[in-house]
């Protein structure tokens, strides 16, 4: 493949980062106080919770399904863990066990979703919708106001700062995204996972245990939502019953911006990180420009639409480039054959 084509394909595959770069430069020019160290750190910090939901949603979308329940798991997992630790169990639990308990609750809810969807064949939209409503209701019942104070170790992930005043949440999410990027690209598990999303029936026929992959998708998604819950609880120093409310729709926006598609088989975790950052950057710059909060929300909705259009255009351009390359190759071969004939 020629260098130029390789470059073009690389840019198309990483279109989200090209857009972010463009948007960044635009904001440096038009938005006051945008390009300050504190503000940039702030953008990433405020994107952290959303980015985990985007990754959770994105991974389920890669397998070709969707998970609405993540925003309720975000409140449910830390809520249940804390209630167990402080009220229901006769002995108090230490904060680190509590963190693991939070993750376990998220994973269990995911397992429940996954088993019903993969083994019983429940529609994923309806399954996760019922969990979305049910878990939120349970949280509202069990946590009437909010749970606080929380142990220092429990809030460290969401609240702690390290050298350079960088919140610990930032390296945490970066590591999580890199791990998942690596898993999808470089492990057999990840490849079977993506293949299942590309065509579940064909993957099943070719000998992949596709229901296991679907269950894993939901377990991972539940666990990531629980991590998001951990960060959210840490950031506000308490567990409130409204945490995560309304975030699931934007998680679709981030995932689609990051290259995922409702048909499955597409998207990469690093792309999704880009999608989440773009969402955060836009709301940040609109805030700095003094735009009304409701309009910010509307803008994010418009962004979903834009993401879908960009995705279609990108696909068309990519296929066009590859098709042209194929034609060129064919013509070249014909030319060679003709030359050989002439020489012989």
């Amino acid at each position: 493949m020629p260098k130029k084509l390789q470059m073009q394909l690389f840019l198309l595959n990483n279109l989200i980062w090209v857009i972010i770069a463009g948007f960044f430069i635009l904001n440096v020019v038009i938005t006051p106080k945008f390009a300050t160290y504190d503000n940039l750190v702030n953008i990433v910090y405020h994107s952290a919770i959303m980015s985990l939901l985007v990754l959770a949603q994105g991974l389920v979308m890669i397998i070709g399904l969707l998970d609405l329940s993540i925003e309720s798991i975000l409140a449910f997992a830390p809520g249940i863990a804390l209630l167990l630790a402080t009220k229901w169990l006769p002995v108090g639990l230490d904060p680190v066990t509590c963190i693991f308990l939070t993750l376990a609750v998220g994973a269990l809810v995911g397992l429940f979703n996954g088993v019903f969807i993969a083994k019983i064949g429940v529609n994923p939209f309806l399954q996760s919708l019922s969990m979305l409503i049910m878990l939120r209701g349970v949280v509202l019942f069990l946590v009437p106001f909010s749970i606080f104070p929380l142990a220092k170790a429990y809030t460290y992930a969401g609240q702690g700062r390290m050298a350079g005043n960088i919140p610990v949440a930032i390296p945490i999410i970066l590591v999580i995204f890199i791990i998942f990027h690596f898993i999808l690209q470089y492990t057999t598990f990840g490849r079977y996972f993506v293949a299942t999303g590309g065509n579940a029936r064909a993957s099943f026929v070719s000998g992949i245990n596709t229901s296991k992959m679907v269950i894993w998708a939901f377990v991972i998604s539940g666990m990531l939502a629980a991590v998001a819950g951990l960060l959210a609880a840490g950031r506000q120093g308490s567990i409130s019953n409204s945490m995560g409310d309304g975030m699931v729709m934007l998680s679709f926006a981030g995932a689609i911006l990051g290259g995922a598609s409702l048909d499955g088989g597409k998207g990469t975790p690093l792309g999704m990180l880009g999608g989440a950052l773009l969402l955060g950057m836009i709301s940040n710059s609109l805030n700095l420009l003094g735009v009304n909060v409701s309009l910010v929300y509307a803008t994010q909705g418009a962004l979903i639409f834009l993401a879908i259009v960009i995705d279609r255009v990108r696909e068309k351009v990519r296929n066009h480039l590859l098709h042209q390359e194929q034609v060129k190759k064919m013509l070249h071969q014909e030319q060679q054959a003709a030359n050989q004939l002439a020489a012989g």
Partner: peptide, 23 residues
């Protein structure tokens, strides 16, 4: 419907069953 993984690349399709051999 049962053969190709249409949206995936030629490489990802071809290697699918032989992944253990290259890992």
């Amino acid at each position: 419907n049962e053969g190709i993984l249409g949206t995936l690349s030629v490489r990802e399709n071809l290697i699918l069953n032989a992944l253990p051999a290259v890992s």
